[in-house]
């Protein structure tokens, strides 16, 4: 019963946030520019949470997430621009193609571990970028312009919620537990009947699917895609990784908070962009040295925990 109640409360909160944004935008308190940033927050949440599935929960180490993002971004844009497909099917197609690519990228994960896998995924991401760079149908090196602005805040918000809920449910199911087992000790997992190959590839495919969806939202948000390292290459991958690591590997709420904070702060620090790029890496290194599992370190922030925090409860109540 308590569970149902807190579920309803969460839904109510989520609706409230949406209503508040709509209301404030209608009143002109939130400018379109602000709502844009909120949309970007949602897109980044999708990226970080989906990478968390691969890196945080399954213990693989991908730094090629931007590759999946790129596939979703370009395929969906091609579908809406060249084939006049409606947006939602285009998002799904982008996600599916990215997911299939994730299957292919997951395959090396069967043989590689840790840092070798990291480099291989980075390589995969760059290969995807170079292929896009050489594909004239999507603008090649000139970039892909004239993409319709289909991404609304509502849609980005809804997709982010779906992503978080689906990945949370996945992690809390037997499938997710199998992924955790692979992360913790592959040999023990195998000896308990867990097909580690299958779950690594599954995590890659699922994570890639959502990254593809995020890409689709992004290309119809920015209306222009450039095949540069910072937009779809390894610089982008590392951006996502920074958010993930600061939020904490294996913490979904950590990912959400980090994605929001690290999307919003740079907007306020526009004039200090250069210093930001110095501050971020230092922050990243400091976290690794002093709190290597990230700020949230595999724990989740819960409503219950929050209310107790507000009540001034002495113990910090997190729920695993």
């Amino acid at each position: 019963m308590a569970n149902k109640l807190s579920g309803l409360l969460k839904v109510a909160l989520l609706v409230l946030v949406y209503a508040a944004v709509q209301f404030l935008e209608g009143r002109g308190i939130l400018l379109p520019y602000h709502v844009q940033i909120l949309s970007l927050c949602c897109i980044n949440i999708i990226l970080v949470v989906s990478l968390n599935l691969i890196n945080g929960f399954t213990g693989q180490f991908s730094i090629g997430h931007a590759g999946f993002f790129a596939i979703g971004a370009y395929l969906s844009a091609y579908l809406t621009v060249k084939l006049q497909l409606p947006f939602i099917p285009a998002i799904i197609c982008g996600g599916i193609l990215a997911g299939l690519t994730g299957l292919a990228v997951g395959l090396p994960a069967l043989r590689l571990r840790g840092d070798y896998l990291a480099i291989a995924t980075l390589g995969f991401g760059e290969i995807i970028r170079v292929i896009i760079l050489n594909t004239d149908a999507v603008g090649g090196a000139r970039g892909f312009s004239g993409i319709p602005k289909y991404t609304t805040f509502g849609l980005a918000y809804l997709t982010a919620i779906i992503t978080v809920v689906v990945i949370r449910n996945f992690v809390a199911s037997d499938y997710g537990r199998a992924c955790l087992a692979v992360r913790e000790d592959e040999i023990a997992a195998e000896s308990l009947g867990v097909n580690s190959t299958y779950f690594k590839v599954l995590a890659f495919a699922l994570g890639a699917f959502f990254a593809g969806a995020a890409g689709a939202l992004f290309s119809h948000y920015l209306q222009y895609m450039a095949p540069t390292p910072s937009q779809i290459g390894f610089v982008k991958s590392i951006d996502i990784l920074i958010m993930l690591v600061l939020g904490g590997l294996g913490s979904i709420t950590g990912s959400v908070v980090a994605a929001i904070v690290l999307t919003v702060i740079p907007e306020f620090l526009r004039g200090f962009a250069e210093y930001r790029m110095i501050l971020y890496p230092i922050l990243l290194m400091a976290v690794m040295i002093y709190r290597p599992s990230g700020l949230m370190a595999g724990r989740e922030l819960t409503l219950k925990g929050l209310t107790e925090l507000f009540k001034g409860a002495k113990t910090r109540a997190y729920h695993s």
Partner: peptide, 26 residues
Amino acid sequence: LRSSPRISVLITAIGASLLFQSTAQL
């Protein structure tokens, strides 16, 4: 980080790389 998981060290190395680049740019 010598006794930390290798992934933490790799992330630190990525951080160091970014730091060098942005400092050099500045």
